[in-house]
């Protein structure tokens, strides 16, 4: 019987697998996609240092290779069943099941589908992008960003909280990383295209991490990025192809209109669909945001209500890379003391 099965080969899953392997346990990683790395594979640079995200992925790829950790790609986990003897049976899309002593769920998150916010025009206007689209673009080509309409970018707006903090999207929670991502992307855009005027429409700026507030200040002082406190209410296209935005500039208490050449939606994080499937097959308690509920946020952040079943990374809620890796390290300790 395998000691630990890790579901998901994002950074959380890989990091835990490597650490458990080093502690002498027999691990198996199951990943639904054709490559490892999870969401971070698609990012260009990582806040706050703006290091290349690829460095992080290649570091972990090398760690997995070096240790000869067994990982099955293209393997979707359908369900987790707890057996009477306390062990687990994992069922997958490959029609093979695996037995193990304990499980780590490291299934992360999925991106909010911006088309659900119809009034923002994603999928309707080609120059409405998401933060993820922009990262993917920069990852493929570091050259200056060209608008899908091929027109010069005179004004660009970043919209915070798309699919987060929004009852209408069914997501009341904050996705934590999108404020600082907006600032990072706004600065990158300014670096490439200094003449573009850049605006961020925010409700609150959540600059909670190391270096975040400094980036915000750099955005204001060095790059002249304008922060407007108001939530976008709707977008319409002008005859000339520019996008008209409507919001309230709440600090001056007046409705605010602006035409921009490109709109970037800061999409939030949602719990993976598999999380709900696992919750059902194994009776795992989820929080009101649909992410997995840690047994005790302070004292047992990796344990769940099911004994022997642990979590690592953003499957417990939105986390940055830094916070994800801290959580995966504590997952290693939690599993080690369980298997002892």
């Amino acid at each position: 019987m395998i000691d630990v099965i890790i579901i998901g080969a994002g950074i959380a899953g890989i990091d835990t697998a490597c650490n458990l392997h080093d502690a002498g346990y027999d691990v198996l990683v199951l990943e639904k996609e054709k490559s490892m790395g999870g969401n971070v594979q698609h990012w260009s640079t990582l806040f706050p240092s703006k290091r290349n995200a690829h460095e992080v992925i290649s570091y972990y790829t090398e760690q997995v290779r070096k240790r000869g950790i067994t990982m099955y790609l293209n393997t979707f986990v359908n369900s987790i069943k707890k057996q009477d003897d306390g062990s687990f049976e994992i069922h997958t899309s490959r029609e093979v099941s695996f037995k193990c002593k304990s499980v780590i769920i490291a299934t992360g998150y999925s991106l909010f589908n911006a088309q659900r916010k119809e009034e923002y025009g994603y999928g309707i206007y080609s120059h409405v992008l998401t933060s993820a689209d922009l990262e993917k673009h920069w990852q493929k080509q570091s050259a200056e960003f060209v608008s899908p309409t091929q027109k010069p970018l005179n004004k660009v707006a970043f919209i915070h909280c798309v699919g987060s903090r929004d009852e209408k999207s069914g997501n009341h929670y904050c996705s934590k990383v999108c404020c600082v991502t907006a600032v990072k992307q706004a600065i990158t855009l300014k670096q490439q295209s200094p003449h573009t005027q850049v605006f961020c429409f925010y409700m609150d700026l959540r600059m909670y991490g190391p270096g975040f507030e400094e980036m915000y200040r750099e955005a204001q002082e060095k790059w002249g990025i304008q922060f407007i406190r108001g939530r976008l209410s709707e977008v319409a296209e002008h005859i000339d192809g520019s996008l008209q935005l409507k919001a309230e500039d709440t600090l001056s208490a007046r409705p605010f209109k602006i035409s921009v050449d490109m709109l970037v939606l800061m999409v939030g994080m949602e719990s993976q669909k598999s999380t709900a499937m696992f919750a059902e097959s194994c009776n795992i308690t989820c929080a009101s945001n649909r992410f997995i509920q840690p047994l005790d946020h302070h004292l047992q952040p990796n344990a769940t209500n099911v004994e022997g079943l642990f979590t690592a990374g953003a499957c417990i809620g939105p986390l940055s890379v830094f916070d994800t890796l801290n959580h995966s390290k504590s997952a290693t300790l939690a599993v080690t003391s369980y298997l002892k």
Binding site: R165, M203, D204, R229, G230, R231, L232, S233, E234, K246, A247, E248, D249, T250, A253, P255, F256
Partner: peptide
């Protein structure tokens, strides 16, 4: 209410 201003932005009377 978190004072986001969406209501005012969309309101014809406010415009």
């Amino acid at each position: 209410c978190m004072s986001c201003g969406s209501c005012t932005a969309t309101c014809s009377a406010a415009n």
